[in-house]
Computed example of a mutant assay.
Amino acid sequence: MTTGDDRAEGSTSARPVVVDVPGSRSWRRAFGDLGQGWRQRPLWGYLGWQDIKQRYRRSVLGPLWISISMAVVATAMGILYGALFGEDIATFLPYVATGLLIWYFVDGCIREGSEVFIANEGLIKFLPAPLSLHVYRLIWRQTLFFLHNLVIWAVLMIVFPHPLGWSLLLAIPAFAVLVLNGAWISVLAGIVATRFRDIPPIIASLTQLLFFMTPIVWKYDTLLANPAVAERARLAELNPVMHFVEILRQPLLGQPIAWRHWYIVGAITVTGCIAALVFLRNYRSRVAYWV
């Protein structure tokens, strides 16, 4: 006969119990995870490229649809909002298109980053690979999307020439900073969302709100020049995404560089990287149980 204690023991054994392996919470293992993932570049590089190919499988134009879809959206928004705000299409259309180019990268890192471990549940459970491999794969995939869409910016610079100078070289470190921030956001949001599954839909809703709060289809400087709304317009500075967009858009459009955006982005980058490393150190070993 089965006693109550036996039944209780059986029900307990049926549930996975998270047990911290001695030494699992260590900085050495956290940095080791990042290093092992980086050394597996051929694997996550191939997987990231395959993600794009699978998305446009059996399509005649293939990955060109990435640039075509962005070109259509940027043109429609540029013409519509340019007419509403009375902006010159020659300057406003490149402004909107470049903003969308950067926003797509940021939005992809935030949205997909929150589900980076959930989406790779099978690989995490059955493939002995570092967690950072999935983050590198995500960032690489978003970088490929960005490079595809960069063609739209190049075409617009030919059709609507801008005074590009040496400041254009700042676009390289600016994009590198975006990549670094996309990585820590994916680690941090991915771990939290794996434990609390309500996080991804919340993040999806917040990113929609952030889009309209970020100067992409409207100009921040134009609002500042209007005394009636200048004080309220300054609230846009509280949106961290704005600063990430500006550090890359300004050199791409040949605009004067506002260094305050770099200072704010630098502070966010350092803080975010530290937080992501702490979470990776403390909860890396638990992700396989949570998925």
Rank of each mutant, 00 (worst) to 15 (best):
R7Y: 14
G10L: 14
S13D: 15
A14K: 08
V18W: 12
V18I: 15
D20P: 00
V21E: 15
V21Y: 07
G23E: 13
S24F: 06
S26Q: 11
S26W: 04
W27A: 15
R28W: 12
F31M: 14
F31I: 12
F31D: 03
D33F: 06
L34H: 01
G35Y: 01
G35E: 09
G37L: 13
W38G: 12
W38S: 13
R41I: 09
P42K: 09
P42R: 13
G45P: 00
G45C: 07
D51N: 15
R55I: 06
Y56M: 04
Y56L: 03
R58T: 14
L64M: 13
I66T: 06
S67G: 12
S67P: 08
S67L: 12
M70H: 01
A71W: 10
V73I: 10
M77D: 14
G78A: 13
Y81P: 00
G82R: 05
I89C: 04
F92E: 02
F92Q: 05
P94N: 04
P94H: 12
Y95D: 05
V96A: 02
T98S: 10
L100V: 06
L101Y: 01
F105I: 08
F105H: 11
G108M: 10
G108K: 03
C109P: 08
E112C: 09
G113P: 02
G113D: 05
E115G: 03
A119F: 04
G122R: 09
I124H: 04
I124V: 15
F126Q: 11
L131S: 01
L133H: 01
H134D: 10
V135Q: 08
I139F: 09
R141A: 04
R141Q: 14
Q142T: 10
Q142C: 09
L147A: 14
H148F: 15
N149I: 12
N149C: 11
L150C: 14
W153S: 00
I158C: 07
F160R: 01
H162Q: 15
H162S: 13
P163M: 11
L164I: 15
W166G: 13
S167F: 13
L168K: 03
L169G: 03
L169N: 09
A174E: 06
A176W: 04
V177E: 03
N181G: 14
G182V: 05
G182Q: 06
W184A: 06
I185W: 03
I185G: 02
S186Q: 12
G190H: 01
V192M: 12
A193P: 07
T194I: 06
T194F: 08
R195I: 06
R197F: 07
R197E: 11
I199L: 13
P200S: 00
S205E: 11
T207W: 07
Q208M: 11
F211N: 08
M213T: 13
T214I: 07
T214H: 06
D221F: 03
L224V: 10
N226L: 09
P227R: 11
A228P: 00
E231M: 12
R232C: 05
R232H: 09
A233K: 01
A233F: 04
L238H: 02
P240E: 01
P240V: 02
V241M: 14
M242Q: 04
H243T: 13
H243A: 12
F244K: 02
I247S: 08
P256K: 12
I257S: 08
W259H: 00
H261G: 11
Y263N: 04
G266R: 08
G272H: 10
G272Y: 09
C273D: 03
A276Q: 05
F279S: 13
L280A: 04
N282K: 12
Y283W: 15
R284K: 09
W290N: 04
